[in-house]
């Protein structure tokens, strides 16, 4: 929440995931693990202590055979702008040690493992379960330490980690632009590892402020309503909590869009009349 270096260009990076294209293949999850030095344990089947910055949820429409439908929903950190999109993200506003902070120049919610002292208040605050605690010392068995990337420091036991929108890729793009005396980085210069990996092309990434970027065109964020999508097929998870995520989802399926938030009986119909 502290003001950061704001000279130069500011962005609002965001992600749009087309759920109709997502096949649940898991490439995004693994690309993220590989890119960000996410560790693994012998037993990762307790999903409540399995670190996955990107987690793909399986949703069902709840109907019985053969009316059943399923949909996969990839969930990185939503990089919440918080109420009014002022940077008071649920997690940032509660972290007592400013170990997670809002980047006003990028819209990215940082996580500084060396600052974090492991109180886990941010985890309690995040309704998306996007935050993961290092319950164990990370271990890379055999020689696997050798594949670790120097771009992202491995975290120690006792601290929280989460998706950073591959911030190190932004830094690299920014440095490159700086060397080339450019104010602005190009859309293709900063793409996250999951976006790049998705073989279905379901993930789109870019600057939500920039009308020429695909993400902007896909969801048409409403600047007067903290970036709420104007595309009726687009939605954000738990929109009603006013967390103001920068991750948007698109689906033609009504039940999928409805699953994005909680509605009282009859409310969905009422609220969605305007979109037909």
């Amino acid at each position: 929440m502290s003001k950061q270096n704001t000279h130069g260009k500011t962005y609002k990076f965001g992600m749009v995931i087309d759920l109709d294209k997502c096949t649940g293949c898991g490439s995004c999850m693994v690309a993220c693990m590989s890119e960000n030095n996410v560790p693994f344990k012998e037993d990762e089947t307790d999903k409540k202590d399995s670190i996955a910055w990107m987690r793909v949820y399986k949703l069902t429409n709840g109907k019985s055979f053969p009316e059943t439908e399923i949909c996969y929903l990839p969930r990185p950190c939503m990089q919440c702008g918080g109420k009014g999109d002022h940077g008071h993200s649920p997690c940032v506003s509660v972290c007592p040690a400013v170990a997670t902070d809002y980047g006003h120049d990028t819209g990215v919610v940082s996580q500084i493992p060396v600052r974090c002292f492991g109180c886990r208040y941010c985890m309690a605050a995040c309704p998306y379960h996007a935050r993961y605690f290092n319950w164990w010392d990370p271990k890379w068995p055999g020689e696997m330490e050798k594949y670790l990337s120097p771009d992202v420091s491995p975290r120690m036991r006792g601290v929280v980690e989460k998706c950073s929108f591959c911030y190190h890729r932004y830094q690299a793009a920014r440095d490159k632009a700086y060397y080339e005396h450019r104010e602005e980085i190009h859309e293709d210069e900063y793409q996250t590892a999951c976006t790049e990996a998705c073989p279905a092309g379901a993930i789109t990434f870019g600057d939500l402020h920039n009308p020429s970027h695909k993400v902007h065109q896909l969801v048409k964020p409403d600047p007067h309503h903290s970036g709420r999508p104007r595309n009726p097929k687009a939605f954000r998870l738990l929109e009603r909590l006013e967390t103001n995520p920068k991750v948007y989802y698109i689906s033609e399926k009504e039940w999928v869009r409805k699953a994005g938030d909680n509605y009282l009986e009859g409310e969905w119909k009422k609220m969605n009349k305007k979109h037909g």
Binding site: G26, S27, M29, S34, G142, M144, Y147, P199, G201
Partner: peptide, 16 residues
């Protein structure tokens, strides 16, 4: 594109 197995390739290179 690449699938999750291909992306995990280095875990084969350094496979246990």
């Amino acid at each position: 594109g690449a699938c999750l197995h291909g992306i995990s390739g280095l875990q084969y290179l350094y496979g246990l």
